[in-house]
Structure formats: structure tokens, C-alpha cells
Design a protein around this nucleic acid. Structure first.
Length: 331
DNA sequence: CGGGGGTCCCGCCATT
DNA sequence: TAAATGGCGGGACCCC
């Protein structure tokens, strides 16, 4: 169920819906993976979009299915301080009984207002991070990631990040291969490469530096198997190591070696998910050198080991219950 | 698991 | 004068 408090940014609603619809289309014929129902707080069911579209929800929220599997909340900037007690009460009750609850963008304000986010970790569109923190001081608001999971509650940075959140749900429900297929169908990244910081591109930086760093990012992903040193990277970008470090910090919010380490883990995840190559081979292909180095990198970045990571995707039923649950898909 | 040796990173400062 | 650059050293981190 997608609960909408209009007016909204169209993409906040349509983006996630598109992801679920595409998943259905790609899923095995005959059975639908997701059955989406859009409900709204307005009695006339009208949903106005900030860009001028007029949409009609399926139902008023009071006649929504009794217990949906997942609940996604979408609201626009002007509706973030909605104080409709009935709706907030409904939200609170639903959140208690629903397997998974997500907020797109400033809908995090509604969850907080309904008392659902109490002292949890959350994110929101970077423009509203400060306000969210001020209104609800017990929250730990992190404005950097594109989405955050705390328990069964997900919050996202909004606009396009709602799509990333929906993809993460698809990945959780149907595995990485399906999510990857959906992302490909929609011409999206399954996981945005390297840091997922909301502002990675928006920080003001000179255009020349921006393209130089971007070119280097691309080159790095294509040469992960080489033993890349900071000095080599700096030479390739025609900068001193010190300047390179500063440029990375400005644009990506990460130091060069840290970024490289992330790329290597990402590449290894893909190979583990999509091939049955041996661990030593994957470690070599991703620039770890040996499998034990890769293992340590996984422990640091994901809190698991390469073997268990792969097992989760291929034969999850063989994992013991306590191995299964806290799988860190979170970016 | 621990320690030695190496790499990296960030604050600081002189220089451009 | 303001801003960017590059070098240096201590400290953190990681590989072996």
C-alpha cells in the first residue's frame, strides 16, 4: 500500500510504482510479485502533483486493505507538517503491524509525527535534514545516504531516491538478480557506483576538476584488478597526491583509497552474485590480490564474509535462522 | 592473534 | 589579499 498525502512531487510516487510494475512484468508469467494500492488522505481521492498532473488514488486510506505486507508513505513538502490526527493514528497503527514501512523524502516527517521513528536512524532530502533534526531531536538524522534502514523502517532522500528504495525492497524480496534486471530495464543503477552520497555531484566544484575526477572514477572501475596506488592515480589525474585527496573529499566526500576500497567490494559483490568463480579468482579480479584480504574487506564493509554473502543469494534456505536475518543490504 | 612494516590521510604551513 | 597547491609529519589503519 502506498499512502499519499498530496500535493506531491509526481516522481516520489510514480518512481517506486514503476519499479514494482516493472518487477511484475519481468517476473514469471502469471503471478504478480507486487499488488500496489494507492490510498490518500483526501476524501475525493484526488492527488495533485507539483508539476501539474492530476491523479486519482484507488481508495481513501480508511478503506485500505487491513494488513498490507509493506507500506510506503509519500508526501509533498507542503504536507510534511500535516497534523491530521486520524491519519497519523492510522499510520501509527499500520506501522506496528506491517512487515516493512518506507518513507519517501519528507514523508519521514509524517512517520516521526506519528511517533513511529522514535529515536531511530533516518534520512531525508538534504535540504530538510536540519529541520527534521530540530523538530524531532531524538532522531539520528544522517543527510548523506540515499536511504537508511532501521529495523523495519526505511527512510529515503526522496525524488529519485524513492526509486532506489523501491529497488532495495525488490532486492530484499526477490534477490539481486531480479533487482538487477529491473534496474537494467529502467536504465538505472542497481546500486549507484561508489559512495551514495546525496550531494556527490552538487557540491560546487570547478568543472575541470569535476570531469577529471569523473574520468578517474571510470578508469578505476575498469582497472580494479591492477594494484592501484594513490601515487599512480594522482599521476593519471595530473595532480599531486595531496590535491587528489582534496578533490576526492570535495566531490565524493571520501578519500581516494577509501573510494577504491568501496569499488572493489562492489565489484566482488557482483561477481559473487552473478558468477560461480572461486573466491581466489574473484579476489584477484577485483584487486584484492588474495582471498583473505577480500574477506577482511567484506567484514569491514558488510559485516559478513564472501562465502556467506554468496550463500545468501544462492541457497538461503541452508542458512541457519540466526545467520539469515541481519543481512546488510544497506548502502 | 599480535606485532612489524607499509600505506594512507589530514592538519598545518610555506609557496604559488 | 584570497585561494589553491604541494610537502611534511603524526597518527590511524591495514596487509603480511
Amino acid at each position: 500500500v502506498v499512502a499519499v498525502v498530496p500535493p506531491i512531487e509526481e516522481l516520489d510516487l510514480v518512481g517506486p510504482l514503476q519499479v514494482f510494475a516493472t518487477t511484475n512484468r519481468l517476473a514469471a508469467s502469471g503471478q504478480e510479485a507486487y499488488e500496489c494500492e494507492v490510498v490518500t488522505s483526501r476524501l475525493d481521492r484526488r492527488i495533485d502533483g507539483e508539476s501539474g498532473l492530476r491523479m486519482v488514488a484507488h481508495h481513501h486510506y480508511r478503506v485500505a486493505p487491513r494488513s498490507p505486507d509493506s507500506l510506503l508513505v509519500v508526501c509533498g513538502v507542503s504536507a510534511r507538517h500535516c497534523r491530521d490526527p486520524h491519519f497519523l493514528k492510522w499510520l501509527e497503527q499500520r506501522c506496528g503491524r506491517t512487515r516493512r514501512v518506507g518513507a519517501v523524502c519528507v514523508a519521514a516527517f509524517l512517520l516521526a509525527s506519528a511517533g513511529v521513528l522514535r529515536s531511530r536512524r533516518a534520512t531525508v532530502h538534504w535540504k530538510y535534514a536540519g529541520e527534521l533534526k530540530r523538530c524531532y531531536p531524538d532522531l539520528s538524522v544522517d543527510p548523506n545516504p540515499i536511504w537508511v534502514r532501521d529495523g523495519h523502517i526505511y527512510t529515503s532522500a526522496g525524488i529519485a531516491a524513492g526509486i532506489d528504495l523501491a529497488l532495495a525492497w525488490v532486492e530484499q524480496d526477490h534477490g539481486s538478480a531480479v533487482a538487477l534486471a529491473v534496474a537494467r530495464e529502467l536504465v538505472l543503477f542497481l546500486r549507484r557506483p561508489g559512495g551514495q552520497d546525496q550531494c556527490s555531484v552538487t557540491l560546487s566544484a570547478q568543472a575541470a576538476e569535476t570531469t577529471a575526477i569523473h574520468a578517474l572514477q571510470v578508469w578505476m572501475t575498469e582497472h580494479l584488478d591492477a594494484p592501484l596506488t594513490i601515487e599512480q592515480l594522482a599521476a593519471r589525474a595530473a595532480m599531486s597526491p595531496r590535491t587528489l585527496a582534496r578533490a576526492f573529499a570535495r566531490q565524493l566526500g571520501v578519500a581516494p583509497a577509501k573510494y577504491l576500497a568501496r569499488l572493489r567490494v562492489e565489484a566482488a559483490r557482483r561477481l559473487l552474485e552473478q558468477t560461480d568463480k572461486g573466491l581466489e579468482q574473484i579476489a584477484g579480479a577485483c584487486g584484492f590480490g588474495r582471498a583473505d584480504v577480500m574477506r577482511r574487506a567484506f567484514a569491514r564493509a558488510l559485516g559478513t564474509t564472501p562465502a556467506r554473502y554468496r550463500q545468501y543469494f544462492h541457497r538461503p534456505e541452508e542458512l541457519r535462522a540466526h545467520d539469515r536475518s541481519p543481512f546488510p543490504i544497506e548502502p
